[in-house]
Structures are given as structure tokens and as C-alpha cells.
Computed example of a mutant assay.
Amino acid sequence: MNQLRYNWAIIGCGTIAHEFAQGAERLGGRIYGVGNRTREKAVAFARQYGIETVYDRPEDAAHDPNVDIVYIATPHNRHIEYILPALQAGKHVLCEKAITLNSGELNQAMEAAQENGCILAEGMTLYHMPLYEELRKRFEGGALGRLRLVQASFGSYKPYDMTNRFFSKELAGGALLDIGVYALSFARWFLSSKATQVLSQVSLAPSGVDEQSGILLQNEAGEMAVLSLSLHAKQPKRGTAVFDRGYIEIYDYPRGSKAVVTYTDNGRQEIIEAGHTDMALCYEILHMEQAAAGEGNAMYLQYTADVMETMTTLRRQWGLTYPEEV
């Protein structure tokens, strides 16, 4: 495959940052720079992936004239403090989900991107998987009729420790921002417009973050979505989009490479396979570089904004705020 066309700097050295660097290697490229709050981790990361530049402070990546694109992989309550300086310095930004804590922060970032002529995007894998473009051809072509309902579940079993990042309010924990963003993004891919009605039930952990919820959405077209999230119970990552004349089923939908389409008039099933699950980060990188080069923009920032608006509404309903928002 082609080497990277741009110099990338990574901020953060967690699990997903390693996957990202490995994705760059699979594309025949190499990350240019890395920064982390603990510099020793950045040094080790750089050594592992042959990265030539290590920043003394992660924010220094924004001011490096050799950097074209900044990839942010810190805990999401720190995203905005790295997004804004990078955009203001004229860098394109790809940021891990959830891209910000709330719609207010995202609106700030979107304004900065527009003012500085930069691409801003969320690292939402499913928007970049080839399977979803194949599915779009099916449902936009009218073969399945009108969309009626989207269903999605995402459940993990996490140790019930309030100091764990999944349950820590200081680290913006909770199911919604960590795994719910996938389910909501899946729904948004199929819905013809954003949700205008948002209902839910939630269970809060002793730390005050959401540990389990059921969410019901409806848009102006009358299309609905039903989502279930849990940090207490492992669930299959199963998504279904139900239309007048058939339905689409996808397992492991965040990085899905296979779907089954069932046509309800005769029960015929069509299996659609596209892309590879283990290439998910590669697709993100390629799409971001294409957007930076002005070769179209398949980064779906408006979908990201719609999902963030829904998450902000949900947390407002739940009375859930993080220290940075007070």
C-alpha cells in the first residue's frame, strides 16, 4: 500500500494509539512525532515505532512546523485542550471518540477548524469501514424501502472499581461517552436526519457516571432507534436496521466487515462482505489524508455533531456533569 502523504503527530500513548501507529505501519508509513504527559512513555512509544520526534510536552506537537495532522488519543476529557491549539496552528485534527465532552466544546472546535481552513474529524471506525458504504448503496437505492427502526447494543463487563477510568467522573467515565458513542453513530449512519426526540432510562454508578442505559430516539421523519448500553454485562455488538421491505444485520458493528440483508417478501438473504476488521485504523488514516488533500471529505463531521448533541441532551436529562463542565 502507499506510504503516508503527511506528517502525523500522535498525542497520547494508550492502547488505541498503538493500534493507530500499527495501522500507519501497515500502510507502509511511519508516524513523525509523539507526545505524552509522561515523557518516558512517549520515548518508549517512539522507540517501538521508529518515530523520530518526541515532544517534551504533548501540546508542542501543535507548534511543530513539520506536522501536518495531529491525532489525539488521550482520555476524552483532555481532548479539547489539544484540539484547539492544533487547529489554531493550522493543523488538521483527527481525534478519538468521543471527540469532546459536549456540544459546546465541539462547536468551539468546529469554528476553529473553519476559521483556519482545517479538517476536524472524530476517529469513529464505522464511518470508514468499506462495508457501510456498500450498505448505503442498498438502502439509498430504495431496494429495502423506507427505514423504520434501528436497534443497537453495546455491553462490556468492567471491574466495579470507581477509580477505574470507566467509572471515574474525573476521567469523564461512563458507558455513554465510551461505548454509547458507537451505538449512536451506528444509528446516525442509517437515520435520514438527526434525532429530535430523546428519551431514556439510566442507572448511575456510586461515582455518579452512567453505568447502564436504555435510549429511544426519533427524528422528524418518524424513524426510530432503540439502543442499550451497559458496563456490567457483555452484549454482542449487534446492530439492525429495519426497513419496509427488509432488514440489515451486522455483528461487531463498530468495525464490521460483514452484513446479512434479509428481504422480507420472500425471505431471501444477501451476504455483503467488504473491507477487513483489522484494517479499521488504516481506513481512518486514508480517509483523513484524502480529506486533507482536498480529495473529498468522508469524515462525517456533521454526523459526529449530531451524535454529540444527542449525548449532551442525554447527560442533561440524567443530571450528569463532569468537573470540567462545572
Rank of each mutant, 00 (worst) to 15 (best):
I248C: 10
I99W: 06
L227E: 00
W318D: 07
V43Y: 02
P254S: 09
R47G: 07
E40I: 05
M279V: 01
G155F: 10
Q108A: 12
A293G: 06
P236I: 03
A89L: 04
A98F: 11
D210W: 08
N102D: 14
G33M: 00
D64T: 12
G296W: 12
R146A: 11
A305N: 04
K258R: 15
L199R: 14
E19C: 07
A109F: 13
L320R: 10
L204K: 14
L231D: 10
V93W: 14
G23F: 04
N2I: 07
K258S: 12
C95Y: 13
S228P: 01
K97L: 10
A172N: 07
K158H: 11
Q48K: 15
G246W: 01
K97S: 07
A183F: 00
T313Q: 08
T277P: 04
V209T: 11
G222S: 09
T262P: 01
V93E: 01
A293Q: 05
Q22P: 07
A98Q: 15
A21S: 15
E324D: 15
R316A: 15
R316G: 11
I10S: 01
N102W: 04
E122S: 15
E273W: 03
G275K: 02
I250L: 12
M1D: 03
A205C: 06
Y251C: 12
T304H: 07
V150N: 05
L27T: 08
N219E: 00
N77Q: 14
G208D: 09
A241G: 11
A187Q: 05
A221T: 08
S168Q: 02
Y157H: 10
N266S: 02
I16P: 00
R315D: 04
E140H: 13
V93F: 14
R146C: 09
L131Q: 09
P236A: 12
L301S: 06
I10L: 12
A225W: 01
G222K: 05
N297L: 05
R315V: 03
V198Y: 03
Y32I: 02
A17W: 09
G239K: 01
R39W: 05
A205L: 00
L314W: 09
A187G: 08
N164T: 01
I285S: 03
V261A: 08
N36E: 12
Y251V: 11
R78E: 12
V70N: 06
S193F: 02
G173K: 12
Q114W: 00
Y127V: 00
G12W: 08
G222E: 03
C13M: 06
Q48D: 15
L126D: 09
T163F: 11
I272W: 00
G246K: 03
V209G: 10
A183I: 00
N297T: 09
H232G: 14
V54L: 01
R37M: 07
L301Q: 06
Q302V: 00
A274R: 07
P130H: 08
F154A: 10
L231M: 15
L101G: 02
W8C: 06
M124T: 08
